[in-house]
C-alpha cells in the first residue's frame, strides 16, 4: 500500500506546493511525453535526475522514496519481461538487452516520480479548482477530486480486508506465481464491491443534500497564474523542444558506450 502513501498529499508551504496545479500538470505531461519519446537509457537517467531537485525543494523526500519503493516491484517485473523477450529473440547482444530492459523500467520509475511529485504537492481542492477553471464540467471535477481523495481510504480498507482474510487462514505468500495472484481474489472482490457500494451511497447522500441544485456555481478562491508558474511552463516547453530535436536529429548513444570512453 506504500505506493498510495507515496501519492498522498501532505500540506506544505514550499515553492513547489504554491505552484499552480495547471503549470505542474503541464510539467507532468511534458515529462510523460519525453519519457515515452526515448527508449534509450541515457536520456531517461537524465530525466530521472532533473526531477530530484523538485523533490528536495518540496521537502517530500521521505514520501517520494516510499512511492519509488512501492513502484520498484512493478519496475522489476517490467525489467524481467523486457529482458526475457528481447533476449530470447536472439537478435541483440547482452549489454544492449540489459540496457534496454533497464531503460524500460526506468521509464516507468520516471513516470511514477513525476506523478508522485505532482500529487504530493497538490491539494485535491486546488486540483478540482484548476479543473473547473479549465472549463471542465463540474460533475467531472467533482468525480475526479473525490476519486483522488478516496485513494487513502481505499488503501486503509484494503489493509482491513487483508487482515480479515488472514484471520480466515489466507496466506498471501503461499504457492507458486499463479497461486499467489489468485490469493488476491479474496481481497480484491470485497474491495471493489465496497467501493461500488460506497459510491452509490455517496451519490444518494449527496442528492438528498441537494447536490446540483444551483446551476451556476461560484468559488471562494480563484487560481491565478503567477510568474513562477510561467517559468515552470516555459522550462517544460524548452525541455520538450530539446527532446524532440534530439529525437529527430541526433543519435542517442548507449550509456555503456559513453561510460567506456
Amino acid at each position: 500500500m506504500s505506493v498510495f502513501d507515496g501519492l498522498r498529499f501532505r500540506r506544505g508551504s514550499s515553492p513547489i506546493h504554491q505552484l499552480d496545479p495547471r503549470a505542474k500538470f503541464f510539467y507532468v505531461i511534458v515529462m510523460f511525453v519525453v519519457a515515452v519519446l526515448f527508449n534509450e537509457l541515457l536520456p531517461l537517467v537524465v530525466l530521472f535526475l532533473i526531477q530530484i531537485p523538485f523533490v528536495f525543494v518540496a521537502r517530500v523526500q521521505r514520501e517520494w522514496i516510499r512511492s519509488l519503493r512501492g513502484a520498484a516491484f512493478l519496475a522489476i517485473i517490467i525489467f524481467g519481461f523486457n529482458f526475457l523477450f528481447t533476449y530470447l529473440s536472439g537478435q541483440y547482444e547482452l549489454s544492449y538487452v540489459l540496457e534496454r530492459s533497464f531503460a524500460m523500467s526506468l521509464r516507468f520509475i520516471v513516470l511514477v516520480e513525476s506523478f508522485s511529485v505532482f500529487f504530493l504537492t497538490t491539494s485535491p481542492d486546488h486540483l478540482g479548482l484548476a479543473l473547473e477553471q479549465s472549463h471542465v464540467p463540474y460533475e467531472f471535477c467533482f468525480a475526479f477530486t473525490t476519486a483522488v481523495r478516496f485513494v487513502p481510504v481505499l488503501a486503509e480498507e484494503a489493509q482491513t480486508i487483508m487482515d480479515a482474510q488472514k484471520t480466515r487462514g489466507l496466506e498471501l505468500e503461499r504457492g507458486n506465481f499463479i497461486k499467489r495472484i489468485r490469493n488476491y481474489i479474496p481481497i480484491l472482490i470485497p474491495l471493489i464491491v465496497n467501493a461500488i457500494r460506497r459510491s452509490l451511497e455517496l451519490a444518494e447522500a449527496m442528492e438528498s443534500r441537494a447536490w446540483g441544485a444551483t446551476e451556476k456555481r461560484t468559488n471562494l478562491y480563484v487560481l491565478k497564474l503567477k510568474k513562477s508558474d510561467y517559468v515552470l511552463a516555459l522550462l517544460s516547453i524548452l525541455l520538450l523542444v530539446l527532446a524532440v530535436y534530439i529525437r529527430l536529429f541526433l543519435p542517442v548513444p548507449q550509456l555503456g558506450v559513453v561510460l567506456r570512453i
Partner: peptide, 30 residues
C-alpha cells in the same frame, strides 16, 4: 496470523470486509 487463527477465531466488525464468494456455502467453506 494463520497459525494463531486456528486457535483464535475473529469476526470483524464489518462483514463486507471479508465476503467475496459466489455462494454463502463457499464463503463458509473458505
Amino acid at each position: 496470523v494463520a497459525t494463531l487463527a486456528r486457535k483464535v477465531g475473529f469476526v470483524f466488525q464489518n462483514p463486507d470486509h471479508q465476503l467475496f464468494c459466489e455462494t454463502v456455502e463457499d464463503e463458509v467453506a473458505f
